[in-house]
Design a protein around this nucleic acid. Structure first.
Lengths: 140, 140
DNA sequence: CAGCATAGGGATAAATTTATCCCTATGCCT
DNA sequence: AGGCATAGGGATAAATTTATCCCTATGCTG
């Protein structure tokens, strides 16, 4: 396994939090789990932009950091369910705030992000949003 | 300049926000600026773990995203001051929440983060904290 | 039987982010 | 004159994170 080489900065709250939330899909995963999307296959459907591999990796890190818990059912086909731990739940206000902030400023953000120098292509259908699915009754 | 190759995911608030806050020092920089640490050299002193180069890069991205504004004084030696824009200020509740969450759970987080498999060395003096400096009257 | 669904993970490549090093410029101070 | 402080950025290497591909396993279904 890969082993970090640069010292990790964890001496201010900001860095500790960043360490936990750092990962392309981690906030989205926590959000999903909080909305009762517990099975990896469901998460994968919700986040078509992500690969099974990446989700596995990031879920494992969240679990190692104690933000989520994994329950394995001895069935076939395999069944696994994740849930937020207490400390994981305590992150939700932050996740919610991030979600709201992004939605509130969506049009502005889309503009500046899209116009930033290093931007290439932009995908707009990576995370369909639970609400839409919910609206169509496809959430389970 | 580097140009992105994978499509950027910006369709849910979480991803938009992540895009803006994603950078090792960005949250810390926003926090610093909000506390009136406006000059690059001051920030560098506050964050000894960072290089001038990285700060420059991340400050520029924050500026391109419209979170901060740069004011250049035509003096010698050069003087530059950053300040939060209105939308930049609107991020502060999130930054504060992240900061608080990290501090609140510090001992737990230090443990799990330190014990995670891929961890090597850990630096504990990267971001000394404005408060300490302030307490010693070294903040200006 | 062939194929699907479920979940997990190794190996490796590619992409992206950070780190290093070096160079520019100009007054002031010793 | 030589060195410091200030701010910026190019070029390139190293580190880190994501993406791709492939393989395992087991009942059920058509």
């Amino acid at each position: 396994m890969y082993e970090r080489k640069t010292p990790l900065a964890i001496d201010c709250g900001l860095h500790l939090t960043r360490e936990v939330l750092n990962g392309k899909w981690k906030p989205a995963l926590l959000n999903a789990i909080s909305m009762d999307i517990k099975r990896p296959s469901e998460m994968l459907r919700l986040l078509p932009g992500a690969t099974r591999r990446v989700l596995n990796v990031q879920l494992k890190e969240l679990e190692e950091h104690g933000m989520i818990e994994k329950k394995i059912y001895s069935e076939v086909p395999p069944k696994v369910e994740y849930s937020l731990t207490e400390i994981g739940w305590s992150l939700m206000p932050i996740i919610d705030a991030m979600n709201q902030w992004g939605d509130t400023h969506r049009s502005y953000l889309e503009t500046v992000i899209t116009q930033a120098p290093k931007i290439g292509e932009v995908s707009k259908s990576v995370c369909q949003g639970y609400r839409e699915m919910f609206a169509r009754g496809e959430t389970r």
